[in-house]
């Protein structure tokens, strides 16, 4: 029933797709982390106007489908002079989409830190930057690990959408094999397993970091 030779014959195609998916996700997620941090910094340091712009950014990128966003940029972009390769649109698109989510996760992490902790820092004479470095950022990251892992898993899965703008990633590779061989089950089963393995890896890494960094934070302080 299953023809596994189909998979072994096309192993190199699948592996190239997998490698590209990993690359795009890794870059997209790193940029999302940076972007999310910058967004939050932008929101908190420039007053009311920047908070409003932040809200617009977040609601737009969280409130429209990722598919629509990359469609607009990849197919609509050339009409207004934005002509980038599919890979670039994919990475940047993933980063912009992810940034909106990551920024909100960071915001929740910062707001979970009690005001008293910040007041103690100020009372002892720490500057704002010192407080940020010593008190806020380490705790924010620790508290954010579980939601960040969840969102990262979602981003890895969302990256399959990039097949639609012809990025030759994992999904595209599986579709090509299916189209050429007229076999559906084998390539898509392997595809599902591959995403599952990737996201499992992310979750496990997250679990490990959670154990390592949050052991003292769950307590009643």
């Amino acid at each position: 029933m299953f023809d596994f030779s189909l998979i072994s014959d096309n192993a190199s195609v699948l592996l190239r797709g997998l490698a590209l998916t990993v690359q795009i996700c890794a870059m997209g997620i790193c940029l999302s982390l940076i972007g999310g941090g910058l967004l939050l910094a932008f929101r908190s340091c420039l007053g009311r106007g920047s908070a409003w712009l932040y809200d617009v950014y977040v609601t737009v990128f969280r409130g429209t489908p990722f598919l629509v966003q990359i469609y607009l940029v990849y197919f609509g972009g050339p009409y207004i002079g934005l002509d980038f390769s599919a890979e670039v649109v994919g990475i940047v698109g993933l980063a912009m989409y992810g940034s909106a989510y990551f920024a909100e996760i960071f915001r929740a992490g910062v707001e979970a830190i009690s005001r008293g902790q910040l007041e103690a820092a100020r009372d002892l004479g720490l500057t704002r930057q010192q407080t940020l470095r010593m008190v806020v950022i380490p705790q924010m990251f620790a508290r954010c690990i579980p939601p960040l892992v969840g969102q990262t898993v979602i981003l890895v899965k969302e990256s399959s959408v990039l097949s639609i703008i012809t990025v030759p990633e994992l999904m595209t590779a599986a579709m090509r094999i299916a189209n050429e061989s007229f076999s559906i089950l084998e390539p898509y089963l392997v595809l599902a397993l591959s995403y599952w393995a990737l996201t499992l890896l992310v979750s496990r890494a997250g679990r490990w970091m959670e154990r390592r960094y949050t052991q003292h934070l769950s307590l009643k302080v």
């Binding site: 009690s114 008293g116 902790q117 007041e119 103690a120 820092a121 009372d123 002892l124 010593m134 008190v135 380490p138 705790q139 620790a142 003292h216 934070l217 307590l219 302080v221």
Partner: peptide, 13 residues
């Protein structure tokens, strides 16, 4: 000048 708070406000991490 230093203050001691009702909620201690130690840094838990």
């Amino acid at each position: 000048v230093c203050m001691v708070f009702q909620q201690f406000n130690l840094w838990p991490h």
